[in-house]
């Protein structure tokens, strides 16, 4: 009796295992298949662009000279966003996880999470109507006093709708992502290691540098990369905030354009080769994101031995 019972239990266990491993495998395959299908769609739709005569491409000088300025614009906007959002986001997360009194930390964490939930079109409207006009004066000042640095070359935009404004709006959008992800990582730092640092006579800040930040290193990089993903792909906010134009070095003049905004603004009226062109631009954006993620993985794996996982 007991043998049949245990045999039956083992039997159902095996079936359950099979079902679950099948479901897990299916989910894994589905993700790869979807990714592959998207990539295939982009490549096939983009192909006509690469075989077209250079004169037929927008700008008349071929695809590379069409895509290059907007790739640069995309990277500049994302870089501005990350340069601003990373230190602030990490600082906010550290404040919540290690400095704020517990009640306040909970409230603040909640607010940060809410910030992440605001739709991008609202950020865009805020950036275009409020932030841009507020930044006109500082831009003018920068043009007058730091104009010799190419990125602050004048004349400053009269509307404030520049790539720097777009970058700042993106920073505000990326900030809650970085802050809430890194906060979670900081909270997971083993008490054991924090106490080890404190027992050696570390101040709170020294303890954070000794135990918390090294532990969270991989997590911070992942958070920044997720933020970068949003900054690269963000469409609506940039489309509303930036008054676009040809590529220029100055960040405080109208000009520059990002891939996502370029696609969104032109897609509704595009047909024929123009449509292929925009999809090709999408393919380029896809490749950039892929590359960024691979680099991030590589950075994280380089320090595997010291990650604490062993």
């Amino acid at each position: 009796m007991s043998t049949t019972k245990s045999a039956r239990r083992a039997g159902t266990g095996r079936t359950g295992d099979k079902v679950f491993s099948g479901a897990a495998l299916g989910a894994g395959v589905l993700i790869v298949a979807v990714l592959f299908a998207v990539a295939m769609f982009l490549v096939i739709q983009a192909l006509p662009t690469f075989s077209a005569a250079p004169a037929d491409i927008t700008g008349g000088k071929g695809f590379v000279s069409y895509i290059f300025p907007i790739v640069v614009g995309t990277l500049i906007a994302a870089a501005i966003a990350l340069v601003i959002a990373t230190p602030i986001g990490v600082a906010v997360a550290l404040y919540i996880s290690h400095y704020a009194p517990r009640n306040m930390a909970r409230g603040l964490g909640y607010v940060v999470d809410l910030l992440a939930a605001i739709p991008s079109v609202i950020y865009g409207a805020w950036g275009a109507t409020f932030l841009a006009s507020q930044l006109k004066v500082p831009y003018q000042w920068l043009a007058d006093n730091a104009g010799w640095i190419p990125i602050f070359g004048g004349p400053a935009s009269g509307t404030g709708k520049t790539i720097l404004t777009a970058g700042i709006v993106l920073a505000v959008m990326v900030l809650p992502i970085i802050a809430s992800l890194t906060r979670e990582i900081f909270l997971q730092t083993p008490m054991l290691h924090q106490e080890a640092a404190l027992a050696l006579g570390a101040t709170r800040w020294e303890m954070i540098r000794m135990a918390v930040l090294p532990f969270a290193r991989g997590g911070i990089i992942s958070a920044v990369m997720l933020g970068l993903g949003r900054a690269l792909g963000e469409t609506m906010a940039v489309a509303l905030v930036l008054s676009s134009g040809p590529m220029i070095a100055s960040l405080i003049r109208s000009g520059n354009q990002t891939i996502a905004a370029e696609i969104a603004l032109n897609f509704p009226e595009a047909f024929g080769l123009r449509l292929n062109e925009l999809i090709a631009a999408g393919l380029v954006l896809f490749l950039i994101t892929l590359l960024v993620n691979m680099v991030a993985r590589w950075i994280i794996s380089r320090h595997k031995e010291f990650s604490g996982a062993n």
């Binding site: 083993p190 106490e195 080890a196 000794m210 090294p214 320090h303 010291f306 990650s307 604490g308």
Partner: peptide, 8 residues
């Protein structure tokens, strides 16, 4: 529990 810093 032994607690050497894992990242060092």
């Amino acid at each position: 529990r032994p607690n050497p810093f894992p990242t060092m």
